[in-house]
Amino acid sequence: MRFKASIQNIHTFTKLTTSLNSLGPLAWVKLSDQQVCFTIIPEQGTQVWAVLQIDTIFDTYTVQSAAGNVINLEVPLTSLTRALKSALNATSAQIRLTKKDNVPLLALTIVTTTSSNHAAFPTGTRNDEDGMENFDNTFGSGNRETIVTQEIPVRVLAPDTVAGLHEPQTREPDVHIMLPPLMQLKSVSDRFTKLALVGAKNGSTATRTRLEMAANMHGCLKMSIKTDAMSISSVWTDLTNPDLDPSHVSGGDIGLAEHPSTRMKQLGSADGRSEEGWATVRIDGRDWGKVMSVGRLGGRVIACFCHEHALILYVFLPSDTAGEESVLTYYVSSYSA
């Protein structure tokens, strides 16, 4: 079993793990020849199924195993994120799967170069509060090269252990819409949640942190919150409802004509005032704020509303290369009315 890769986009990798870590402490990471997958399945809250193209994060990349060149790992995201943050100013960074005292580890080796007037610096090992770091300093042409290796304990998962894990099954969405910038949505939802918490001090009910999200097929999105003490909402208009590709719809053109979103498009209006044609979900405000942290990565986001059932977000990461896109899929369950 072998995995080794050089990291070409440390900032994207760090933002990704930071966002995922807000939803759960552990990730199932699937390494294969074609892609890298991160999955978060918490006991409660939003599930994330991220499919990353290799060149989104890595440059050179090697994975080998007896199980069809697939390696499954359970990775502590807090430790991985901390290690990646230490590499933000690195000249280069590599990550590999190794072992120490029979414990599997992800070893992140970071190289930094700084100017120096000194002639020598010792090689050795430092043990600090974040764990063991091995470092080595060499010099040349007035520059000092520092090599630090951070070790993240992981668990190797047998293929049978993850064989039964699958993405949630949802019905065809009633509405699909391109969301405004997620950090903008996060700012509004966080403000709503804080206002609800203030209302809670005055005796509002336990539903105080539940946001109501709704959208229609005329480019309208609405976010609202209601408590015993208040009712507030924000509406976005002139958003885009992407066209569905008949080749991706069961039944082709006939299936598209009978698709729930096609029927919803016949209802409502573009000014958002009509009460018809809206698909609605009710979600936890704090959980939603954590989901919105993925907005740090940029990229476009398509939201699929299954009325009174679930909200599915497809976050497409920016890429400098053509080909398949990296996408993070968020499954947010709706509370009952």
Rank of each mutant, 00 (worst) to 15 (best):
residue 9 N to R: 15
residue 12 T to M: 14
residue 15 K to R: 13
residue 18 T to L: 11
residue 21 N to G: 10
residue 23 L to K: 05
residue 24 G to H: 08
residue 25 P to R: 15
residue 28 W to H: 15
residue 29 V to P: 02
residue 30 K to Y: 02
residue 32 S to N: 08
residue 32 S to P: 00
residue 38 F to H: 02
residue 38 F to D: 04
residue 42 P to I: 11
residue 44 Q to L: 11
residue 45 G to K: 07
residue 47 Q to C: 13
residue 53 Q to W: 06
residue 54 I to K: 15
residue 55 D to S: 12
residue 55 D to T: 06
residue 56 T to Y: 01
residue 61 Y to R: 09
residue 62 T to W: 01
residue 64 Q to Y: 03
residue 65 S to C: 08
residue 70 V to K: 10
residue 72 N to M: 08
residue 75 V to I: 13
residue 75 V to S: 06
residue 78 T to K: 15
residue 81 T to D: 15
residue 82 R to G: 08
residue 85 K to D: 08
residue 86 S to Y: 13
residue 87 A to V: 06
residue 90 A to I: 13
residue 93 A to V: 12
residue 94 Q to K: 13
residue 100 K to F: 03
residue 118 H to D: 07
residue 120 A to L: 08
residue 123 T to S: 14
residue 132 M to P: 03
residue 136 D to S: 12
residue 137 N to T: 10
residue 140 G to K: 14
residue 142 G to E: 08
residue 145 E to W: 10
residue 146 T to D: 14
residue 148 V to A: 06
residue 154 V to R: 04
residue 155 R to Y: 10
residue 157 L to N: 08
residue 158 A to G: 09
residue 160 D to H: 08
residue 162 V to P: 11
residue 164 G to Q: 13
residue 164 G to S: 14
residue 166 H to F: 11
residue 167 E to D: 15
residue 169 Q to M: 10
residue 169 Q to D: 10
residue 175 V to Y: 01
residue 178 M to I: 07
residue 182 L to D: 00
residue 187 S to V: 05
residue 188 V to S: 07
residue 191 R to F: 02
residue 192 F to T: 00
residue 194 K to Q: 14
residue 195 L to I: 07
residue 198 V to L: 11
residue 198 V to A: 05
residue 199 G to N: 07
residue 203 G to I: 01
residue 206 A to N: 06
residue 207 T to D: 12
residue 208 R to K: 10
residue 210 R to H: 03
residue 217 M to Y: 04
residue 217 M to D: 05
residue 217 M to K: 04
residue 219 G to C: 03
residue 219 G to Q: 07
residue 221 L to R: 02
residue 223 M to D: 00
residue 224 S to A: 14
residue 228 D to V: 06
residue 229 A to Q: 08
residue 229 A to R: 04
residue 229 A to D: 04
residue 231 S to G: 07
residue 232 I to F: 00
residue 235 V to L: 13
residue 239 L to C: 05
residue 244 L to N: 05
residue 245 D to Q: 11
residue 253 D to P: 03
residue 257 A to F: 10
residue 259 H to A: 02
residue 260 P to T: 09
residue 262 T to I: 07
residue 263 R to T: 12
residue 265 K to T: 11
residue 268 G to S: 05
residue 269 S to K: 10
residue 273 R to V: 00
residue 274 S to A: 12
residue 275 E to I: 02
residue 276 E to Y: 02
residue 280 T to H: 04
residue 282 R to P: 00
residue 284 D to H: 03
residue 285 G to T: 02
residue 287 D to S: 05
residue 291 V to C: 04
residue 291 V to E: 03
residue 293 S to A: 09
residue 300 R to L: 15
residue 301 V to T: 15
residue 302 I to T: 13
residue 304 C to L: 06
residue 307 H to E: 09
residue 307 H to F: 01
residue 310 A to I: 11
residue 314 Y to Q: 14
residue 314 Y to R: 15
residue 315 V to N: 12
residue 316 F to Y: 12
residue 316 F to G: 01
residue 317 L to E: 12
residue 319 S to F: 00
residue 319 S to H: 08
residue 320 D to F: 00
residue 323 G to L: 09
residue 324 E to F: 09
